[in-house]
């Protein structure tokens, strides 16, 4: 058993562009701990989304290996990888991607339903999480009846409802104003973080950098900074 929740070894990623391949990630080696809120920051196009997709098991790397809680995820068959994601990974997207014709509680219950849990029980568990996220009173509303911040909280509930050990978020606050963005991140930290769970958040929203335990900075497909001193990081970013 390795000490790390996630180990990335020598990961590289090429994308085909015309007849050529362009390398957008170069020899990435990084470990992520459980119990920490890890930020992945960097300029647009630096490869943050590509890296987090590879870590989350939805994008095959061109080279290298990824272990998530001691499972070599890209050694799994396609189907095993899907089942692995369902059991172990919670996703939070910038666009929420809620199903518009399901209520908040039903949306929150999706991973449990996908795993075969009975509908009533799953929706009940969805409700419990909405309560933790302070939107119990919105449980029976449809996404279009909710504010952006509320929708993102429903999405967080959906990411947590099946108690996955890894949570990945790509720009979770990008579509929100500063205040609701911060409130969502506060809640995420409060509800998602635990001893045995890793949380990785991609963002270039420096307003919330102070909430991170560790910040990884990327530049041109490489990790160029890795630090736990928030003050320095925030200063660097401000420069």
């Amino acid at each position: 058993m390795s000490r790390f929740a996630i180990s990335v070894h020598g990961v590289a990623k090429d994308f085909p562009v015309g007849d050529d391949n362009i390398r957008v990630l170069h020899d990435i080696n990084v470990d992520v701990n459980a119990g920490e809120l890890t930020y992945l920051v960097g300029e647009s196009g630096s490869g943050k989304t590509t890296l987090i997709s590879i870590i989350a098991g939805i994008l095959y790397p061109t080279e290298g290996r990824v272990q998530v809680f001691d499972t070599e995820i890209y050694d799994l068959s396609d189907n095993e990888l899907v089942m692995f994601r369902l059991a172990n990974i919670g996703f939070i997207f910038q666009q929420y991607n809620l199903i518009p014709t399901l209520t908040a509680a039903e949306n929150a219950a999706i991973p449990l339903i996908a795993d075969g849990m009975k509908r009533d029980e799953a929706v009940e568990r969805g409700r419990v999480l909405l309560e933790k996220l302070n939107i119990a009173n919105q449980a029976d509303k449809f996404p279009r009846q909710l504010s952006g911040g509320q929708q993102q909280r429903v999405a967080i509930a959906r990411a947590l409802v099946h108690e996955p050990r890894l949570i990945v978020c790509d720009e979770p606050t990008a579509a929100l104003d500063a205040k609701s963005g911060r409130r969502v991140m506060d809640l995420l930290r409060e509800v998602a973080l635990s001893e045995d769970r890793a949380v990785i958040i991609v963002t270039h929203d420096n307003r919330i950098f102070d909430l991170a335990d560790r910040i990884l900075a990327m530049e041109d497909g490489r990790i160029t900074h890795d630090g736990r001193d928030k003050a320095i990081l925030m200063q660097e970013d401000a420069q």
Binding site: V82, R85, A114, D115, R158
Partner: peptide
């Protein structure tokens, strides 16, 4: 209209068969 939602379901862990 729902392709994003289908994509999200696939990421979350719904198999192609389902």
């Amino acid at each position: 209209d729902n392709i994003k939602q289908f994509g999200a379901l696939k990421a979350i862990g719904v198999t192609n068969r389902k």
